[in-house]
Computed example of a mutant assay.
Amino acid sequence: MNADARRRFWIGPVLAVTSLLVVLFSLEVGLRVVLDEEREQRLPRFGVPESVQARIAWSEWQSRRDKYGTTSYPSSFDEPDRNLGWRIRPNVDVTHVKPGIYEVSVHTNNRGMRGLHDVASEKRHGAARVGVFGCSQTFGETVNDEETYVERLGERLENVEFLNFGVRGYGTDQMLLYYEQDARTYELDVVVLAFAFYHMKRNDSGFLFYAKPYFTLSDSGALALSGVPVPSPEELAAEDLEQYTWPLADRSVLLRWTWQRSRNLRGRDLYSPDGDAWMLTRALISRFTESASASGAHVVVMNIDESHRELEDELAALTDELGAGLVNLGPALREAAENGISYTLPADNHWNAEGHRLVADWLQAYLCSHALTRACDRPDPPVSASLSRGNA
């Protein structure tokens, strides 16, 4: 091959590579222009598995704690727990702030539950007792103490004690362990499991906001507990996570954005009715229902998530099979949004005070109409909730 032929041979590949580099450079520059600093910082590390990414985020957050302090955002009401991962600290008294979004007063009682009133193991004589298990929506981290839906119900129904077992960041697995290890001793007449379909991701992980226990499901359908005892913060801080990272690739916004998109695509399968995450979550709800029923409590599953209507029928079939009550707030929340009712905070998916009031109305209507509590004054919910009795 003479010199001219060799040059012609290489012109095509060189032009192709040059064009590709120009396109990639343009995309890199374009993303840096489009994404603001906050969105760019939220992009995941390139090539890092999601569970490791969560551990890295936790380590970085730990290093910033001194900067933010205990009364600014992000703050922590939590303390490490070897069996649960974390739990709410007792006797918290803080102002919880997310600048420009909310500034609220947060108290916890002697038992580490949200609320101003201390709680005894034994219920008040002549009163019924309802325990509500959930995540940050139930804890109510973005509203004042008296504005949470659990506190509202306690104020409305004088002969019923409502205990708030909500813990920020919990999945169904941690709620189950919380009930079995601690809460079953509280003489609960009714147990409400405030369930959201986004808990499925938490159930499928051994590290999300912090290290946590998790269950796996065998081929026979049996649940097996893993991840306990949960490592201490000191043990986690000593781990070398840099071995999982690609520092040079992390300098590219394009690579990190592409990695995020691929993760999002994989995450779509999480909510499949035939997927492993739903099968695991079904088993967790079933065991929760069986454990609480064995202790003599009526069980009510309350769906607080309006985002995955494709799974609402699956949840209804499961609660019917288990003989549990169902309060499906998905349709009601969607109807509220269609009617222009603002029930979440701006730039934050947590409920505002109006959202908590609506949830209190709907849950009260269900509990009273199904004779699960006494001395009820039933409100008319502002929009209809899908309420199924089961055998509760």
Rank of each mutant, 00 (worst) to 15 (best):
R389K: 10
S369C: 04
P273R: 07
N328Q: 07
I341R: 03
H356S: 12
A347Q: 12
A294S: 15
A365T: 04
S293P: 14
T373A: 15
S342G: 13
L248M: 14
R251L: 15
R251C: 13
D250W: 02
D361N: 06
D320T: 05
D250C: 09
P273E: 06
Y366G: 11
D380R: 07
A332V: 00
D305V: 09
S386M: 09
R261T: 00
Y343L: 13
L280W: 05
S384C: 04
R256N: 10
S384P: 15
L363Y: 06
D320W: 03
D250K: 03
P331F: 03
D305H: 06
E354A: 13
R357K: 10
E354F: 05
S262H: 05
T289E: 14
D305F: 11
C368Y: 03
D305I: 13
R251D: 08
N328L: 03
L284G: 11
L326G: 12
M279P: 14
L333H: 00
E290H: 08
D276L: 09
L329P: 13
R251K: 14
G330E: 01
A316C: 04
R378S: 14
R263D: 12
P331S: 04
R309M: 13
A360F: 08
R261P: 13
C368V: 07
R251P: 15
N349C: 01
G323P: 11
E310K: 08
T258N: 02
G323M: 01
T281E: 03
D269C: 11
S388E: 12
A336L: 06
V253K: 04
T289C: 15
G267C: 00
A324C: 07
R389Y: 05
L363D: 07
M279F: 00
L255C: 05
R374D: 09
M279Y: 00
G296I: 10
S307K: 07
A297D: 05
L318T: 08
S291R: 10
P273V: 08
A283W: 01
L254F: 09
Q364T: 12
G267I: 00
L367H: 06
L280E: 02
D380T: 10
V383Y: 04
G296Q: 10
S291A: 14
E335L: 08
H350C: 07
D377A: 11
A294E: 12
G323A: 03
L270R: 06
L248N: 09
L254P: 12
W278T: 09
S262R: 08
W259M: 04
L333Q: 11
V383H: 10
D361F: 06
G296F: 10
D276K: 09
A292H: 05
A353L: 07
W259A: 10
R266I: 02
R389M: 12
A294F: 01
A347I: 06
D276Y: 06
P382E: 10
V300M: 09
D361T: 06
D377H: 14
